[in-house]
Design a protein around this nucleic acid. Structure first.
Lengths: 274, 274
DNA sequence: TTATGTTCTTCTCATATCGAGATGAACTCA
DNA sequence: TGAGTTCATCTCGATATGAGAAGAACATAA
């Protein structure tokens, strides 16, 4: 096909006999985040086999590439692994309302001791879900508070942290958390952490959990209502007041905006600028 | 290793005999952008072989995964392909000042008619570079104005466009352009399109080319100088005035900011919000 | 029941930022 | 030399933000 067929041997071989080319496998890993007890949690599974047996890892696995089974798209593989390893979809379409987006691809040689593995990471925002049930390769599965993982800015875990993460999953999770913090600023994705109806204080709790800092309640309230399409009123009022008193807050649902304009900038951003 | 070894056959096999698993290949594709004649250009190569022979494509190729040759990291593969197919690095480290970041991964079954191929796309911002020279698999290579490709918002090319793009490269390019437009808002990456020293009007030309709309010169000037760390003055002045008159503008270089605060929001964003 | 403290929601006010326009000086080109 | 263009700065009204205050509604404990 090419005028000089042997000029680029690798491409030539790959075109005709894929098995003769460098062996490589593709996996998906999912950073699934939710809010529990006003704290940000990530879904982790405990590995039942080598390598890194007994350590915790992001749910994930090999993509069905199309050899002996049907070829599946990358997002489908992410949802399937989430379901298989945690049993979260069997319980009546619980994964239907989760927001899923691609986070990035990690392929540094040596990141998996078995072979060259390219992992496509996905980021999921979920409202509060029940506890997962281990399945597939997982010996255990649980929602874990991200604060208990001792993550540093450089993508490592602080020494002494009990729950160690396998592979480069500390880096992937760190990148996912940074993405989540950014997206809350200029998209209405915080509503993906809430149910169908929510109150402004609940929405504020999401921002405070993800950003890890308290917000000015009055200004937050004004801001959310002033951004067009962020939330729309249901007209109803919550049937209970706050957990420690206060009037019954009003109920809202997600609006039709895809971008927040103007954005909801987080206060302590000065340090990250340089 | 696992208590019931045959429970997940795919993972089991992949651990021990990669060749027995679904055949899949990993490639990198690069969306390299630059400004020429006040217009945004993308680096394209014309395919010398099947499939899509004669059509234009993003520079890219297979990742050296580590079989018979040394395993390479994904960003290294992107730089290598950029060099091989366009000859841009041979000319004295021309690619040294290029900003490179991962754009996304494209792996929908059927996107390559030969086999299952997962492509990791990279986005590159480059100052004005010389014309490329075709090499490797490429029959030709050129900087092409993105306006001449007839891209639609949905990632297709308008009927009647002469330069057709191979594979799903129209979608990848569309995603790259959207990322570039976004990044110009809140990062100082526009300076990556300029040389070491530049003037405020030159920087404004970059924004106008990428965003495709004219900006208010006075407000842009005030804004750039008011954002801490965006640019720093060299003290010098350009030796020539504007192309059509006007005083000699002052010279600046990129500052040390990694984020623009406050951001430089583009004017016509209202339409994209919903 | 009453008292106390918490929370929701809406204000106010000073400050910061933004869009649009105007101005004068410096420069190119005819 | 004159006309037109551009750089750089300024003004002004409109809009957004941060910090604080206040009243009403509610939970909890005495």
């Amino acid at each position: 096909m090419s005028p000089e067929p042997m000029r680029d041997e690798s491409a030539f071989l790959a075109s005709y006999d894929p098995r003769a080319y460098d062996p490589v496998a593709v996996t998906v890993d999912v950073v699934a985040l939710t809010i529990r007890d006003d704290a940000l949690h990530v879904l982790l599974v405990r590995r039942g086999g080598a390598p890194f047996e007994g350590m915790w890892a992001l749910p994930g696995g090999f993509v069905h590439a199309g050899g002996r089974r049907e070829a599946e798209d990358l997002p489908d593989a992410a949802v399937r692994e989430l379901a298989e390893e945690t049993g979260l979809s069997a319980k009546g379409g619980l994964l239907g309302r989760v927001h899923l987006e691609q986070l990035g691809t990690y392929g540094t040689p040596g990141r998996d001791p078995r072979m060259r593995i390219i992992s496509v990471a996905y980021l999921a925002f979920a409202p509060e879900l029940p506890d997962p049930e281990a399945g597939g390769d997982a010996a255990d599965a649980a929602w874990v508070p991200v604060g208990a993982l001792g993550l540093t800015e450089s993508g490592d875990q602080r020494p002494g942290t009990t729950r160690r993460l396998a592979f480069d999953h500390a880096r992937i999770l760190t990148d996912g958390l940074e993405r989540a913090r950014d997206k809350l600023e200029y998209t209405p994705l915080a509503t993906a952490f809430c149910g169908g109806e929510f109150t402004i204080p609940e929405l504020r709790a999401v921002y405070e959990a993800v950003w890890g800092e308290e917000l000015h309640a009055g200004n937050f309230h004004r801001k959310v209502l002033s951004v067009p399409g962020f939330v729309e009123s249901t007209g109803a009022t919550s049937d209970k007041g706050g957990r420690r008193g206060g009037p019954r807050p009003r109920l809202y649902r997600a609006g039709d905006a895809r971008l927040l304009h103007p954005a909801l900038l987080r206060p302590s951003r000065e340090e990250e600028i340089r």
